[in-house]
C-alpha cells in the first residue's frame, strides 16, 4: 500500500512538472541587446538535465558560479557566446551532466538525440552572436 502511494506521488509529480515545463516562456536577452527565444524542446532538455544545478538557488556553488541559466539575460555578448560555446563543448565531450549525477538520477541523462538538439541550439546561437 505504501508502495502504491509512493508510485502515485511520483507519477503525479512528474506529470505536474511536465505541465510546468510546457507552460514556461523561455527567452534570453543579453545586456548588449541580444535577445532570443529558447525552443520549447530545448528548454525541456535544459530543465530536465541542466537547470537543477545551474540556477540561482542551486546547492552547487560551483555549478551556479560557472553557469546560471537565471542570469543568462545579464550577459554581454562575449560572455553569452562563451557560455554557449562551453555548453556545447561539455555536452559533446560528455562531461555534463556529471557522471555521478546521472548515475543517481538516470532520467537526467541526455540521449544522443537530446544531446544533439542541445548542442546544435547552442552552436547556432553562438554563431549568430559570434559572427561566425
Amino acid at each position: 500500500m505504501k508502495k502504491l502511494t509512493l508510485v502515485t506521488f511520483i507519477v503525479v509529480s512528474v506529470v505536474s512538472m511536465s505541465f510546468i515545463d510546457g507552460n514556461k516562456t523561455a527567452s534570453i536577452s543579453s545586456t548588449d541587446g541580444n535577445s532570443y527565444e529558447v525552443p520549447a524542446d530545448v528548454q525541456a532538455i535544459i530543465d530536465n538535465s541542466c537547470y537543477g544545478c545551474h540556477n540561482t538557488d542551486s546547492k552547487s556553488t560551483k555549478g551556479k558560479m560557472k553557469l546560471n541559466f537565471d542570469k543568462m539575460s545579464d550577459l554581454k555578448t562575449s560572455k553569452l557566446v562563451g557560455k554557449l560555446s562551453k555548453i556545447s563543448k561539455v555536452v559533446k565531450n560528455e562531461k555534463m551532466p556529471k557522471k555521478s549525477f546521472v548515475e543517481k538520477y538516470p532520467d537526467k541523462a541526455l540521449s544522443k538525440e537530446q544531446s544533439d538538439k542541445l548542442t546544435s541550439w547552442a552552436d547556432d546561437l553562438a554563431a549568430q552572436y559570434g559572427g561566425e
Binding site: 562575449s78 560572455k79 557566446v81 562563451g82 560555446s85 556545447s88 563543448k89 559570434g130 561566425e132
Partner: peptide, 13 residues
C-alpha cells in the same frame, strides 16, 4: 572566435 570565448569563460570560471 566562439571557441576562444568558450575557453575564456572556462579560464575565468
Amino acid at each position: 572566435k566562439i571557441e576562444k570565448a568558450g575557453a575564456i569563460d572556462d579560464i575565468i570560471g
